[in-house]
Every structure is written in structure tokens, then in C-alpha cells.
Write a protein that binds this DNA or RNA. Structure first.
Length: 490
RNA sequence: GCUCCAGUGGAGUAGCGGCCAAACUCACGGCCCUCUCACGGCCGAGCCCCCGGUUCAAAUCCGGGCUGGAGCACCA
């Protein structure tokens, strides 16, 4: 019974326990992005889960930019900082930051050591040629070169004496291994294109992910690796290197791919980059882009994203993340603080006959103490065309009173709320016919324009407000009678 | 073809031998509250992929199948 009680206390933990935590003094993890662009929403899962585990175990994590491909997945120089900013916005602080392209000499040293141990060989087979041998479980003729030749050829690789494709260094694994994915994989290859970072532009022999990452994980004391199922075989590949060096492989967990609904744009860094280059998107923070920067500009809090990502758990199957989950999380955070205003899109002007000179709805229905807005009625108001009642019918202008649609005007019929409570009159939002604030609302479906009530000019840039009956928005620009807002969610 | 991995309401997760004709979050529908279609409250919705087996007892264990995903790159 005592055992049950003590277990109950940890019953509501967010994520399943990491394996074998007792074996380590400190749980250490890493986030290893390729800096080929700012992050899309799916990337948030890395810091969200790893950061949460860090908190659970009072551990640490480092950010390591795996930027060892200057060509195919060429690093974007601005992405290094952009990614670190994304992580900070999500609410996490890395304990350390490093770049693989700063550590190339370390990889060379380990390659030399591996060669000395007979664990690697230089190979000049063409890709297809080798693939055929490999698939039939046959070694290539280079496999049995003597160590000296291998060292010489590797140094030539390091010196940049070969062109791309001429020579690689392979790890000697098991050419007959039942899983073809593990047979004698490439550890280093030649790349003609210089690395975009000045510090690394002279290197031509670049390590492949499995070598670089395997060496780094050990050298940086990583105890737990969490990565996608696309890297399922990586641990098994890297195990060969670990065996040569007599290292202990960290614990590994894999998760499936995250798919996000609601976007027309494919969630891939290269796709988004192309759309921006082609001018289809205005930038990484375009509201139509499925990126972290975009959500940020829309006024979504990092923790709303993090909670949704953590909620996906650690399943290895592919998962669909509904944006509505992020929105619901964010609404929880934002609703109480957001002041209310009226915005009328697609407005129709109606003269108001009779009635007071202004309406005064509260800034927030649950917080009368915040005060009221003042919306003048200069003889006419503007309402959304879909809200105009049929002729002869009544409608309640929120914070103002009841009007009847007669001929082409609104005739004031009083402020007895029983019209709404007992007689079923609908309540709508409205703005004065003049002196409104022109608003451009940027949404994932494109820009929407409208007129906001005068007091909306008081809303500060960066503030999240709710346009009643429309949704929440983040104020992006305020210029007196003109304003740009970004759609947050309903 | 070879090798891995997974399969619980619309989405996600939890449960991992009896307390489970299944819990939670989001979505959806309905009702209530409300001068917002926000917030809040209540209700609805699953034969736990299939077939066998083990067991007094299976969503939970075992075998087979089916379906889905991933890898077999000089990408990460």
C-alpha cells in the first residue's frame, strides 16, 4: 500500500519515464537541428519534449547545430540565431550551444584513430557500384587495404586532394549484416562547395551525420538521445563505432513524424524557403507559413505550443497535431487578459434614429473594473452585412441597445435587456459610421480589412485583444487611424 | 526485395492481466449560462485492427495475419 501511495504522487507526470535514469548522475540530452532555416512548427517538439525532460530530471541539454552538409542541406547563416530565438520563445534555455562545423578537426582525429584500429577504409567505388556489392553482401575491393594506404588516402581527403565523389571513408561494420542499412556505411565524403561559415570554408572532407553525431554524443556526455524514426537505424550504425572505441551508447528513444492540419503549405524547411524566395510568402513569419515565427507574430504563447507537443507523447507512430489544440491552450492563457473591441468587416452603414449618443460596452465581460469603452453614434453605425436583420426585425447593438430595421435605418427601441433575454433578439457588434480605425487583419487565409471602434487605437502594439464575435488578434502596428493585426485564433 | 517500428472514440494521449462496456485534452453536435459565436457548466460519441491461443479472468500476455510508417543516400 505504501508503494501505491508514493507512486500516485507522480501519477500525473507529463511524459513517460526515460529509460535507465538511475544509471546516470545527470540526465543530459541534446537538440541537434540542421540550421538550414528557421523552424517550422514540427521542430518545436524537440525543445518541448527535451526541455520538459530536463525539468523532470533536473538535467541539462545542449543545442548542437549539425551543419556538416555545405551543399544539399546547406546551412543558412541567419538560421543559427533564428533557431536559438525560437527555442527561447518556446521557453527553454540551452545549457550549451555548439556547431559541428567548429569541430571538424575532432572528427578527423577520431577517424584517424578508427583507421588505426582497422575500423575504417577509404573507398573509391561509385555509389551504385558499391550499393550493388553491398546489397548482395559482398565486400568491395578496397575493404582490405593496409592501414598505411588508408591513412594516406584519408589525409589526402582531409587536404582536399579529391573532388566530390572520388573518395569516401567507410566504417567497416559487417558486410553480411542482415540489415542492409547497416553495412559499411560512409563516414566521410568530399564536398566541393565551401561551407557558408567562414570558419569552416576550407574543409572539403565532411563527416556524415552518423559519424559526427555519434562522436559528439559521446564526447559531450549525452545520456539520452531523442530523435525521429527516420533515424531508427542510426543507433545501430553508430554502435559499430562505439564498439571500436569501447564507448557506451546512450539511451535512445524515437518518435514518429508530426503532421499539422490547417495549413496549405507543406511543413518542410526547404518548401517554405522556396515559397519565400518566390515571393509567395512574405517571410518566415508570414501568417500563412507553418513556422514558429509565424505563430509568435500571431500572438501565440510558446507554452501553448510546448504543451501541445508534450501532449503528443513519445509514440513512435506518426501523429497528427490539430492546431485547435494549440489554440485552445493559448486561449486559456490569453482570454482573461485580452480586452474586447469591435471590428466590422464587410460593413454596411445604417442611420440610427433616436437613441443615445454612444454605447459603452465593458473592456472585458469578467472585469468591469477595467472600465468601459466609449463608442459614439454620430447618427449612423456600420454593421456586418450578414448581421443586418430583415426589415421590421430587431437587433441588439451590444453595449448600446435595441434597434429595429425599418426602411433603410435602425430605429432605436430601447435598452430593456429582456428583448435579448426573453424575446430572442440577437446581439451583434458594430462601429460608428465615422472616425473608426482602419484595420488590416492578416490571417492564414489572406488579409481581411475592416473598421474598428475608435478606442481600439488605445490597444498597444504586441497586445492580444479580442474582436468580439470574430476572434483574438495580436496588434502588430498602430498608426492612429490605421492598424495591422495578426489573427491569433477564435 | 531485405530490415526495423507501430495499430485504444474524429485528432492526440493514458490504462499494460481482474477496480475497464475504458480516463483525460482538443474537435464536433445538443442543452444551460451570457448584452460575443469568448469564458464557464452538463450531455452525446469507442464492439480497445483481425483471427487463434494462454488464463477462473485480456485492451492488457503469446502466435499468425492485415494495415500504416521508417530505413537500405557520398541528406540531416
Amino acid at each position: 500500500m505504501e508503494e501505491l501511495d508514493s507512486e500516485d504522487e507522480e501519477d500525473d507526470q507529463l511524459l513517460p519515464d526515460l529509460p535507465n535514469v538511475e544509471a546516470y548522475d545527470e540526465i543530459r540530452m541534446r537538440v541537434a537541428p540542421n540550421p538550414n532555416g528557421p523552424w517550422h512548427i514540427g521542430h518545436a517538439r524537440m525543445p518541448a519534449v527535451i526541455g520538459t525532460y530536463k525539468e523532470m530530471y533536473d538535467g541539462s541539454f545542449l543545442v548542437r547545430f549539425d551543419d556538416t552538409d555545405p551543399e544539399t542541406k546547406r546551412p543558412d547563416l541567419s538560421a543559427y540565431d533564428a533557431i536559438l530565438e525560437d527555442i527561447e520563445y518556446l521557453g527553454f534555455e540551452p545549457d550549451e550551444v555548439m556547431k559541428a562545423s567548429d569541430r571538424v578537426e575532432t572528427y578527423y582525429d577520431h577517424a584517424r584513430e578508427l583507421i588505426e584500429m582497422g575500423g575504417a577504409y577509404t573507398c573509391s567505388c561509385g555509389g551504385e557500384e558499391f550499393s550493388e556489392l553491398k546489397n548482395s553482401g559482398k565486400p568491395c575491393p578496397h575493404r582490405d587495404k593496409d592501414t598505411e594506404t588508408v591513412i594516406d588516402e584519408f589525409e589526402s581527403m582531409v587536404d582536399g586532394d579529391y573532388a566530390s565523389g572520388e573518395m569516401v571513408l567507410r566504417v567497416k561494420t559487417d558486410i553480411e549484416h542482415k540489415n542492409p542499412a547497416l553495412r559499411d556505411w560512409v563516414a566521410f565524403r568530399m564536398v566541393d562547395t565551401p561551407h557558408p561559415r567562414e570558419e569552416a570554408e576550407d574543409y572539403r572532407a565532411w563527416p556524415m551525420l552518423d559519424f559526427q553525431s555519434g562522436v559528439d554524443d559521446h564526447l559531450t556526455g549525452v545520456t539520452h538521445i531523442i530523435r525521429g524514426i527516420d533515424l531508427q537505424d542510426s543507433a545501430k550504425r553508430q554502435q559499430f563505432v562505439y564498439d571500436y572505441f569501447d564507448w557506451e551508447y546512450p539511451e535512445v528513444l524515437h518518435w514518429g513524424h508530426v503532421q499539422v492540419d490547417e495549413y496549405g503549405v507543406k511543413m518542410s524547411t526547404s518548401t517554405i524557403k522556396k515559397l519565400i524566395e518566390d515571393g509567395e510568402l512574405d517571410g518566415w513569419d508570414d501568417p500563412r507559413a507553418p513556422t514558429i515565427q509565424s505563430l509568435r507574430r500571431r500572438g501565440i504563447h510558446g507554452s501553448a505550443i510546448v504543451d501541445a507537443m508534450v501532449g503528443l507523447g513519445m509514440s513512435t507512430s506518426g501523429v497528427d497535431l490539430a492546431m485547435s489544440t494549440i489554440y485552445a491552450n493559448n486561449r486559456d492563457i490569453v482570454d482573461d487578459a485580452s480586452d474586447r473591441y469591435f471590428l466590422v468587416r464587410d460593413g454596411v452603414e445604417k442611420a440610427v434614429v433616436g437613441g443615445p449618443e454612444a454605447g459603452e460596452p465593458p473592456l472585458h465581460p469578467d472585469h468591469e473594473d477595467r472600465g468601459r469603452r466609449h463608442i459614439p453614434v454620430p447618427g449612423a453605425v456600420r454593421v456586418e452585412s450578414k448581421d443586418v436583420p430583415a426589415n421590421g426585425e430587431r437587433i441588439w447593438l451590444k453595449g448600446y441597445g435595441c434597434v429595429r430595421h425599418t426602411r433603410d435605418a435602425f430605429e432605436y427601441t430601447g435598452d430593456d435587456i429582456s428583448a435579448v433575454r426573453d424575446e430572442g433578439v440577437d446581439v451583434i457588434h458594430w462601429v460608428p459610421a465615422d472616425d473608426t480605425v482602419s484595420v488590416t487583419m492578416r490571417t492564414a487565409e489572406g488579409d481581411v480589412t475592416g473598421e474598428a471602434e475608435p478606442d481600439f487605437a488605445d490597444a498597444d502594439v504586441d497586445e492580444v485583444v479580442q474582436f468580439e464575435r470574430i476572434g483574438f488578434v495580436r496588434v502588430d502596428e498602430q498608426n492612429g487611424d490605421e492598424s495591422v493585426v495578426y489573427w491569433t485564433h477564435k
